[in-house]
Design a protein around this nucleic acid. Structure first.
Lengths: 215, 215
DNA sequence: CTCCTTAAGTTGACGCCGTTCACAAATGTA
DNA sequence: TACATTTGTGAACGGCGTCAACTTAAGGAG
């Protein structure tokens, strides 16, 4: 009579907020198991509801996965903002150094999230989504900005500080994002998986150096 | 009595070379559909054989997928070598320029393969595999070298040419690989999918510039 | 040439999945 | 209070990976 992680058997016929419950279950599933672990039937099981009930709130398994992906991106944004807060708090130092620190914090937050929440990270970015939707509020963290926006903001600041020539500003986000994203994916489920921790830290730093220098 | 793409119904009880047939079918499935499209039952169907016959040659669906991944990596190596051959043929020019051209060719081949064979590319590198097996002959192209080996070779040459300081040589493959890999994945099934072709070409070039400059 | 071991394919079944269709129960509105 | 609408249920279909038991061919030993 009980699934893997069932909530209270629910007194009323109606659930209350099934959509939220399914999304929460989906996030949990993605957290340990990645996108492929986001299984409709298991999510409904955890919400204490029959499999088909899900279709009243999500057209598809894919739709649920999309919602999970958005939520995961919001968490990525939170990780980035935390890192920005943590490393650029002392406002001492010139504008240029601050801009560089901010860009680095964006990358560091991204990488840290990938390391500590590989399943969610994978769910966040391996779900096909158009670039046009990168500003959608559903992907924004508590600060109201999406990961993509935080990156472009940091690059704008870098450019405003004179640390990135205007002719190299356009599409610079693609270059920075690619490098950091590639390292993240190669480390969490690619051939770089299982690298010793201290080596990982060094490689991450050097990658960010490379981006700052080569951009 | 016929699956989607069945070979001749086979006169003999024995198949001949079922393992190879299943692998070929798996590659074809991955080609249009990526790793998740590599389905045991469909592969056996195409080989004109019952589903369980596969288990005589692969312990698992995962094992078949692993073989497909290796084959795909060999194709990546071929793409790289083609590009090296194409762009470094005129041996005129100094050693430094040649070394840079070679590293760039490695990246270009990688990116071109990802663009023209997204399904196989995804199958090649999204299958978990340890770094230690990156030299396995099963991943080598016609030239006998794996993608990872071609990259390290190019970096060694760059270092030998004095274009990469010795203290920055260690683990430089991780940085270069990350950047190129990230761009590839973001473009084929990430948020950068569907970028206009001419923009893609420009971004690819700039990314390779960034790596060469920042490494 | 026969017998027998063994490798290679087959049949049938199980449990899981996503998804569809028809139905039932609660809600809220006229 | 009657009714339309939303939300959840039940049963079913086909597809998947995989296991266990069986059958067929091939190849070597006598």
């Amino acid at each position: 009579m009980s699934g893997t992680g069932e909530a209270t058997p629910r007194a009323t016929y109606r659930h209350g907020d099934l959509r939220a419950a399914l999304l929460a279950a989906g996030i949990e599933l993605a957290r340990d198991g990645g996108p492929s672990a986001v299984v409709l039937r298991e999510a409904t099981r955890r919400a204490g509801v029959s499999p088909n009930a899900a279709y009243r709130h999500f057209t598809d398994r894919q739709a649920l996965l999309g919602a999970v992906s958005d939520a995961a991106q919001a968490l990525v944004a939170d990780a980035m903002e935390e890192e920005i807060e943590r490393t650029t708090r002392p406002s001492g130092g010139d504008v240029a150094a601050l801009a560089h620190a901010r860009l680095r914090a964006v990358g560091t937050g991204y990488l840290r999230f990938a390391r500590t929440e590989p399943g969610l990270f994978h769910a966040a970015f391996s779900v096909p989504t158009a670039l046009g939707t990168s500003d959608s509020p559903s992907k924004a963290g508590s600060g109201g900005r999406t990961p993509y926006q935080l990156l472009t903001d940091a690059l704008d600041a870098l450019s405003a500080a004179g640390e990135l020539p205007p002719d190299r500003r356009p599409h610079a986000e693609f270059l920075a994002w690619s490098s950091v994203h590639g390292l993240a994916t190669l480390m969490i489920d690619g051939p770089l998986r299982g690298l010793p921790a201290e080596l990982v830290a060094g490689v991450e730093q050097r990658l960010l150096d490379m981006v700052a220098k080569g951009l």
